[in-house]
Design a protein around this nucleic acid. Structure first.
Length: 412
DNA sequence: GATCAGTCGCGTACCACACGCCGAA
DNA sequence: CGTTCGGCGTGTGGTACGCGACTGA
């Protein structure tokens, strides 16, 4: 039994919605995402059956288990025999596809009894008839580097698909279930995508507009993670030496997260990576946000050592399941299974353990984060809740008030 | 391109007072 | 050392206001 649905808390969570950052059962997934046109645009995928907290990116056909990139990397990335397991890419979908439709895009879907059968029954109770027109699924082309849904090897560092989440010019378009890739090349991410908007590509494309809508959520999250991490969480990465592989120096990372950053963030000649960061001016977070949402300009580009890394913070965020890595401030352009703190010396088991520790520490810290206001003293809150006010200000007991939280009436 | 007015969103100050904290007895 | 007392600072929520960003003329 996996984790329970974040919505109903009853059924087993099956799909992961990044826009909502929630794990949902299929029933709630359809209920929630059939609410309106915007929610239907949320891109979802299966939830990792190992960590139960991250969107799955591949399905291990040998183990019949869906895995996020991290779990996939941990489980298959070593020199163990499992590294030869065949894995099938798990595509994202939007809209409210039926279980049968999900089975059509995920051939293994019916192989998961707790998913297919049970939820099929639940889905049958719902009356959503907009599946045909509004359901799309997006190939995680970053995982489809070979143009084949079958993945047998973890991406190597040398794999130039690091630009995967950079917008491949045409392959990024959501594809209807019965659509086939126009060519094998379509699935190959374009390297060093410049971020320039190609005229005509995105125009008059409702499907793609839908996809863009979903990107907004992702980009917001990326923004939070990117700048939040560089300010507060970078310490963790620094401690583990991981951020060095991203920014090279602390100063670079700090300046990248500076809300008052003006002009380019650039640094070169770092100990590990050569950073060519180009970032448009941003005077505040809002600007940074809009900047990240921009589809016309790349805002950060990091060229790694030699040919191993070429990380592009393009502002174009594909709904790839690089999840945790993105959240660590790394672009989704990172190759599959390669955390941002990817060591240039993967042969070292010690460093591998260090990376694992880094991942664990980051996740723990991430979970500990709470952005909502916390009430330290419930008794004071209870008093404030019933205290009378005038224009929002507390008034002396007995004075004339215009707002009474208890009666919700005005005294005059 | 520069300027101005209007709009929007976000952050913060303000209020009273019960309560937590801390030093003194 | 443990308990009690008194004083002081803190925190609580809804609203108004200021400021910066954005947009259109």
């Amino acid at each position: 039994m996996g984790y329970l649905c974040d919505f109903c808390g009853d059924q087993r969570a099956v799909v992961y919605c990044r826009s909502d950052a929630a794990c949902l059962c299929l029933s709630c997934d359809r209920n929630v995402h059939s609410a309106n046109a915007l929610s239907r645009r949320h891109s979802r995928t299966l939830v990792c059956e190992r960590c139960n907290s991250e969107p799955a990116s591949v399905q291990c056909t040998e183990e019949s288990i869906s895995l996020c990139q991290n779990c996939d990397w941990l489980g298959h990335g070593t020199a163990s025999s499992s590294s030869t397991h065949k894995r099938q890419t798990i595509n994202c979908y939007t809209g409210c596809p039926s279980s049968a439709e999900l089975s059509s895009i995920w051939s293994f879907f019916s192989d998961i009894p707790s998913m297919g059968e049970k939820c099929e029954q639940e889905l049958g109770l719902m009356s959503i008839n907009e599946n045909r027109n509004n359901s799309t699924w997006v190939p995680l082309e970053s995982q489809n580097v070979s143009g084949s849904p079958q993945v047998t090897d973890l991406p190597s560092k040398d794999r130039s698909s690091v630009g995967a989440s950079s917008m491949p010019e045409s392959s990024s378009k959501p594809r209807l279930p019965d659509q086939q890739p126009e060519s094998a090349d379509e699935c190959i991410p374009k390297l060093n995508w410049s971020g320039k908007k190609s005229p005509g590509i995105f125009e008059d494309d409702d499907l793609y507009n839908d996809f863009n809508m979903d990107e907004v959520d992702l980009e917001l999250e990326n923004y939070e993670e990117l700048f939040g991490m560089t300010l507060s969480h970078s310490e963790d990465l620094f401690e583990n030496g991981g951020i060095d592989s991203l920014f090279g120096t602390k100063e670079v990372a700090a300046s990248a997260g500076n809300s008052n950053c003006q002009g380019a963030v650039a640094a070169e000649g770092s100990s590990i990576g050569l950073v060519n960061a180009v970032q448009p001016a941003c005077s505040n977070a809002a600007s940074a946000d809009s900047m990240l949402s921009s589809k016309t300009e790349p805002f950060l580009r990091i060229t790694g050592r030699q040919s191993q890394s070429n990380i592009s913070f393009s502002g174009i965020s594909k709904d790839s399941s690089t999840g945790d890595y993105q959240e660590c401030g790394a672009s989704s352009t990172l190759p599959i299974g390669e955390p941002p703190w990817y060591s240039p010396c993967p042969e070292s088991s010690l460093q591998y353990a260090s990376r694992s520790n880094a991942v664990m520490r980051y996740r723990e810290k991430k979970k500990a984060r709470k952005f909502e206001k916390s009430v330290r003293y419930a008794s004071r809150k209870a008093r404030a809740d019933i205290r009378k006010r005038v224009k929002g200000r507390f008034v002396k007991a007995g004075d004339v008030y215009d707002y009474d939280p208890l009666s919700q009436t005005r005294s005059y």
